[in-house]
Computed example of a mutant assay.
Amino acid sequence: MFVTLIRVSESRTSRRERPAKPALTREGIIAAAVAIMRTEGLQRVTMRRLATELDTGPASLYVYVANTAELHAAVLDELLGEVELGGASGDWADQLIGVLTSYVEVLTANPQLARTAVATRPNGPNYLRLVDRILGLLADGGVARTRAAWGVDLLLLAGTAHAAEHAGAGATADQEWETLGQTLSTVDPRRHPHIHELSDLLLAGSHTERLTWSFQALIEGLSRTEVPGE
């Protein structure tokens, strides 16, 4: 028994010999949060879970991130770095649609974050680069300054809403879409004459076709629509 105790004691590592934990940084905290989101989902990205991952206390994180809402906004901004800001061919409008489509694709690939983005407004470097790129393309198209300034919010809002609606599309979402189609095609023409007349068109077209068309309509509209006081 005495020998066993000695061996156990010798196997322990002194605190002085343990490697020091990496210093906390905002960048490191956000990187850990993104990793948790990818493997466990956004609902698990909490200050407590993050503190466990980083081997620290939750209070230490508040020095770098004010709350969970700010943390989620930072995660969103980090993912916005994946948006393709260039490379699309065509004129300024085609390039703009390419940027916005890439934005939607990034959000759609992260379903929970897409829905959170509806109520979250990031303000990090990747979001600023995205906004600046959109404004630059609108300027290339000769869109008036105020219309462009107001329009960038409208375009991103439309993209965010589309991503939130279609995020995580799968068998259940396809079934819901099919059920809606059946409902629209069998409405009482006396009670809903306009739906009955256009029932074959209300859900026509692919998601990509409808998304591209919606951006085209918005770009054309904001190019022509005056803002108050203009």
Rank of each mutant, 00 (worst) to 15 (best):
A69L: 14
E70T: 05
D55H: 02
L85S: 07
A51P: 02
Y62R: 12
V65D: 02
A66R: 15
P58S: 03
P22E: 07
A69W: 10
V34E: 04
V63S: 11
T52A: 09
N67K: 10
V65W: 01
S60W: 06
N67A: 12
T56M: 05
A59I: 04
V34T: 11
M37P: 01
A69Y: 12
R48P: 08
A51Y: 05
A88T: 15
K21R: 14
V75Q: 06
E78S: 11
A32F: 07
E70I: 02
Q43E: 12
R18F: 03
E84H: 11
G86I: 14
L80D: 04
S60K: 12
A59H: 13
A88I: 06
A88K: 13
G81A: 13
P22K: 11
L85V: 10
Q43G: 14
P19E: 07
M37G: 09
A73M: 10
G57S: 15
A35G: 04
E82I: 08
G41M: 02
E82V: 08
G28P: 05
V75A: 04
L85W: 08
R49P: 04
V45F: 09
M47C: 09
G57A: 14
T68A: 12
I36A: 02
T39I: 00
R49M: 13
A35D: 12
G57F: 10
A59C: 07
H72L: 07
L24C: 02
G86K: 15
T56F: 04
P19Y: 11
L79T: 08
L54Y: 00
Y64A: 03
V65P: 04
E27K: 15
V83F: 03
G81L: 05
T39R: 06
G28D: 04
P22V: 03
T56R: 09
A88V: 11
T39H: 00
A20H: 14
V83Y: 03
A74Y: 02
T68C: 03
A73I: 01
T68V: 09
V75T: 09
Y62V: 05
E82G: 11
G28M: 02
G86T: 15
E53L: 00
T46E: 10
M37E: 10
V65E: 02
R18N: 12
P58V: 01
A88N: 13
A69M: 12
D77P: 10
E40I: 01
V34H: 06
V45K: 08
G81R: 10
T68R: 15
M47Y: 01
G57L: 13
Y64H: 15
E53F: 00
I30H: 11
L71E: 05
G81Y: 08
Y64W: 13
I29L: 07
I36L: 06
K21W: 00
E53I: 00
V45Y: 08
R38P: 00
R49L: 05
L50H: 10
V65N: 06
E78R: 15
A31C: 11
V75M: 06
L24P: 01
L24S: 03
Y62N: 05
V45R: 08
T52S: 11
G87F: 06
V83P: 03
L50C: 06
P19T: 07
E84C: 02
L24V: 01
R48F: 03
V45P: 04
L76M: 11
